[in-house]
Amino acid sequence: MKILIPFYSTYGHVYKMAEAIAEGVEKVEGVNAELRRIEEAIPEETLKEIGAFEAQKDFAHIPECNLDDLKEADGIIIGTPTRFGNIAGQVQNFLDTTGSLWMEGALIGKVGSVFVSTASQHGGQETTIRNLHTTLLHHGMIIVGLPYSFAGQGTIDEISGGSPYGATTIAGSDGSRMPSENELEGARFQGEHVAKIVAKMTV
């Protein structure tokens, strides 16, 4: 069984969360995680100007996601930064190419899940996830979030992302804050939770 983890990351925050999601997936016997990078649409010169070019070198080795990857997966956990309370344009562009899969019904019945990064605590984490859920539902997917059995999302001891809709991280207004251990643990929990459901469904 295979869980696909397609992600888009500008500065590496979503990539770090994607790695943690994969760690959680692979805790479940017989289920493999497969990371796939969603294609960058920002020109290289602009990436250099905004300080993202060097950061993206950390995950440039990961293959770009294609439609066959989605079709062959037993479950899909998508990661995106937030853009004004919505998903990043790169992710939307990629999803806009999935019309042929919709026509085939290729994703119907597959488990779908989402994780995100925002600059601030109230920067649209939940709206971004819910907006992406809309696309997954149009593909006939079964939505899975991050249940409250992950106790870390109830913490008040620190600023932390995480909601029942999915694992999240807070990058800070200047992008300097990388995912905390609690946020990474939420991502691991979500990955494992999705993998357990996929395993049950494919028995």
Rank of each mutant, 00 (worst) to 15 (best):
L95V: 04
I77E: 06
V91F: 05
G79I: 07
G99M: 14
W102S: 03
G99Q: 09
T82R: 01
F94R: 06
Q90T: 11
I87W: 12
P81E: 04
R83V: 08
G75R: 11
L101Y: 04
G85Q: 09
T80C: 13
I108A: 14
D96T: 09
P81M: 05
G105D: 01
S100E: 14
G85H: 07
G75F: 09
F94Y: 14
N93I: 02
N93R: 15
G79H: 08
M103I: 13
M103G: 11
G75N: 11
I77V: 15
L101D: 00
G89S: 15
G105S: 01
E104S: 01
F84W: 15
I77C: 02
G105K: 02
N93L: 13
L95T: 08
I78N: 03
G99Y: 09
G105H: 00
M103L: 13
G79T: 03
Q90W: 02
A106R: 00
V91E: 04
G89D: 10
A88S: 13
Q90Y: 08
F84A: 14
I87Y: 10
I76V: 15
G99F: 10
A106E: 00
G79E: 11
R83C: 12
Q90R: 06
F94M: 14
G89F: 06
I108R: 15
I77M: 07
Q92R: 14
I76C: 07
D96S: 14
M103A: 15
A88K: 00
M103Y: 15
G89K: 05
Q92K: 15
G99H: 08
E104Q: 13
P81N: 04
G105F: 00
S100Y: 09
A88D: 11
P81T: 04
G99V: 12
L101Q: 04
E104G: 01
T98F: 00
I76A: 09
V91K: 03
V91L: 10
E104F: 02
G85E: 08
G85I: 10
N93T: 09
A106D: 01
Q92Y: 07
V91H: 02
T82N: 08
D96W: 03
N86V: 07
N86D: 14
I87E: 11
L101A: 10
M103H: 15
L101F: 03
I108F: 11
Q92C: 00
S100W: 06
I87L: 15
Q92L: 13
G85V: 08
L101G: 03
S100Q: 12
I108G: 03
L101W: 04
E104T: 02
N86F: 10
F84N: 14
L101P: 05
I108L: 11
F94D: 02
I78S: 05
N86L: 12
L107T: 06
A88W: 01
T82S: 13
W102Q: 07
L107M: 13
L107K: 05
G85P: 11
F84M: 15
A88P: 04
A106Y: 00
I87V: 15
W102I: 09
T82Y: 06
T82G: 07
P81G: 05
D96R: 03
T98E: 05
E104L: 07
G99C: 12
I78C: 06
T97D: 01
G89H: 12
